[in-house]
Design a binder for these strands. Structure first.
Length: 245
DNA sequence: AAACCGGGGAA
DNA sequence: TTCCCAGGTTT
């Protein structure tokens, strides 16, 4: 795989290989998470907003408690804001409780309880940016919509040789363009989850597990780091394993 | 483009 | 202690 900046740089053959490797790995090693058992857009939105800058482990019990307390979007819309914040505030970023409350009221009052299914309408909801909108479109509605969260940002940034740590507009545009170009037709739900799990479990922020990465052989970042860095990375993980996780 | 919001876990 | 976490909004 060559270093790419635009989707025109993608080689169709190599892209197909990449998609296959990532999907196969996901079917073997992917995480089984509560919000992956549903396609209800209400459940998806709740999970995604709770997951903003918040770890999966921290969110899981809160997610269960939230839906247990507000089983339907009508329940959430009718609840007092304080009851919502009581559950969500302990996570930090305390504005998220009111975001969810407002979203519920908007969907119930303006959309007859049915979530909007267009990018534009979703982006108009409070607390819903490009990532969350893409998550709803792909996870709930099965659209071939891309997502770029911190995991995807890092994984495809490294693999395709994009300077993912820089936050300027051009880099972000490139990452989104690549994320959109690599989604396999009709498989966005599974593939987007796979990309996130790769970022969370293999292509980690610190000390990535290149040793067990299914696409390491064509990773630009690994090539740039060189053989010596790659070897050190492997040795680090071997020592770690010897000490017993 | 940079600041801001935040508690919690891992290194 | 620092770094990082399924981001988005405001300045």
């Amino acid at each position: 795989m060559k270093r790419i900046k635009y989707k025109a740089d993608l080689d169709a053959q190599q892209l197909q290989w990449f998609q296959r490797q990532v999907l196969d790995w996901y079917r073997r090693e992917g995480r089984d998470l509560p919000w992956r058992k549903t396609m209800d857009p209400y459940h998806i939105v709740v999970s995604e907003i709770l997951l903003h800058q918040t770890t999966v482990k921290t969110v899981q019990p809160i997610y269960e408690k939230f839906l247990d307390t507000f089983p339907t979007i009508q329940d959430l819309a009718a609840a007092p804001l304080e009851a919502v914040k009581y559950i969500t505030d302990p996570l930090g970023y305390k504005v998220r409780g009111s975001w969810l409350h407002q979203i519920a009221q908007t969907v119930v009052n303006d959309y007859a309880g049915q979530f909007p299914q267009t990018l534009e309408e979703l982006l108009a909801l409070p607390g819903v940016g490009r990532y969350t909108a893409g998550a709803v479109l792909s996870f709930a509605f099965g659209n071939d919509a891309p997502i770029v969260d911190t995991n995807v940002n890092r994984f495809i940034g490294r693999y395709f040789g994009i300077e993912y740590k820089r936050t300027n507009a051009e880099i972000q545009h490139q990452l989104w363009a690549v994320a959109e170009a690599i989604v396999p037709t009709g498989q966005a739900r599974e593939f987007n989850n796979a990309l996130m799990d790769m970022g969370a479990m293999v292509c980690t922020a610190r000390k990535p597990y290149c040793l067990v990465c299914p696409v390491s052989q064509s990773c630009i970042q690994l090539q740039d780091d060189g053989v010596r860095a790659a070897e050190e990375r492997v040795q680090y993980r071997i020592r770690e394993r010897a000490q017993g996780s």
